[in-house]
Structure formats: structure tokens, C-alpha cells
Simulated assay, not measured.
Amino acid sequence: MARLSCFSTAFFLIFALICTIDVMAQSPGRADGSVRPTGGEGSLRAEQCGGACAYRCSATSHKNPCIEFCNMCCKKCLCVPSGTHGHKEECPCYNNWKTKEGGPKCP
């Protein structure tokens, strides 16, 4: 009987953890104020850009320019694509903003 109870408790905890992770992945702003962006145009408020860009630029070796341009793009588009690179199709404004030379403006 104790085995069944332990198994039930473990199953419930794992299920609750999976549900919590799924909800956090769908929400751009979390209860602790940190941001793990999921993309989508207009999905952020201007004050959330700093956290979203810090995450977006976390894997690059050129952090300062990445964060500078990401913040500029985020404040215009109110979105940052999910992940540390790629996924720009989630935010057309962010994806389509180009430099004078025709290259991508947003990291």
C-alpha cells in the first residue's frame, strides 16, 4: 500500500511540474517578473524588453551590441522571438526591419 502511495505522489508531482513548465512557456511574463519570451508580435510590454533581450542575447559573444539592437527592435515591435537565435518568423516586424545595407537589424 505504501508503494502505491509513493508512486501516486511521484506521478502527481511530475504531472504538476510538466503542467507548470507548459504554462510558463506560454506566458511571456512570469510571476517572478522574469521574462522568457515566446514571441508573437505585440506579446510584450516595453518594460519587459530588457529581460527578453537579456535572454535572447545570452548565447552570443557580442552581448552589448546584441542587447542594444534587440532592445531597439523590441521597443518598436513589442516582441522578441523565442530562443537565443532564429525563430524570427514569430515576429514579422522584428524579422523584416533591415539596415541601410539590407541586412537584418534585429538579432
Rank of each mutant, 00 (worst) to 15 (best):
M1E: 10
M1S: 09
A2N: 13
A2L: 14
A2I: 10
L4R: 15
S5L: 14
C6Q: 14
S8I: 07
T9E: 13
T9A: 15
T9Y: 12
A10W: 08
F11I: 12
F11D: 03
F11Q: 08
F12C: 12
F12W: 09
L13F: 13
F15Q: 10
F15M: 11
A16S: 11
A16R: 03
A16Y: 01
A16H: 00
L17T: 11
I18F: 06
T20S: 14
I21S: 09
V23H: 09
V23W: 09
M24W: 08
A25E: 11
A25P: 00
A25L: 10
Q26W: 07
Q26G: 13
Q26K: 15
S27L: 12
S27P: 00
P28W: 01
R30Y: 03
R30C: 02
A31T: 09
A31L: 14
D32E: 07
D32W: 06
G33N: 11
G33C: 08
S34M: 07
S34Q: 11
S34L: 10
V35E: 01
V35K: 00
R36F: 09
R36S: 06
P37Y: 01
T38A: 07
T38C: 13
T38P: 01
T38E: 05
G40T: 08
E41Y: 05
E41M: 07
G42K: 04
G42P: 00
G42H: 04
L44Q: 01
L44Y: 02
L44G: 00
R45D: 08
A46S: 15
A46C: 02
Q48S: 12
Q48Y: 11
Q48W: 14
C49M: 06
G50M: 03
A52P: 07
A52N: 05
A52D: 03
C53V: 03
C53W: 01
A54F: 06
A54H: 07
Y55E: 09
R56T: 00
C57R: 02
A59Y: 04
H62N: 15
H62Y: 12
K63Y: 15
N64C: 00
P65T: 06
I67K: 08
E68Q: 13
C70G: 04
N71Y: 03
N71A: 05
N71W: 00
M72T: 14
M72C: 01
C73I: 04
C74M: 03
C74V: 04
K75H: 11
K76L: 12
L78K: 11
L78H: 11
L78D: 04
L78F: 08
V80G: 01
V80R: 00
G83C: 04
T84G: 01
G86N: 02
H87A: 11
H87V: 00
H87Q: 10
K88Q: 11
K88R: 13
K88N: 08
K88G: 03
E90F: 03
E90N: 06
E90L: 09
C91N: 01
C91V: 02
P92I: 06
P92Q: 07
P92T: 06
Y94I: 04
Y94P: 03
Y94K: 03
N96T: 12
N96S: 14
W97R: 06
K98C: 04
K98M: 12
K98V: 09
K98I: 06
K98F: 09
T99G: 02
K100I: 08
K100W: 12
E101K: 10
G102W: 06
G103D: 14
G103N: 13
P104M: 09
P104A: 15
K105M: 15
K105N: 07
K105S: 13
C106Q: 05
C106W: 05
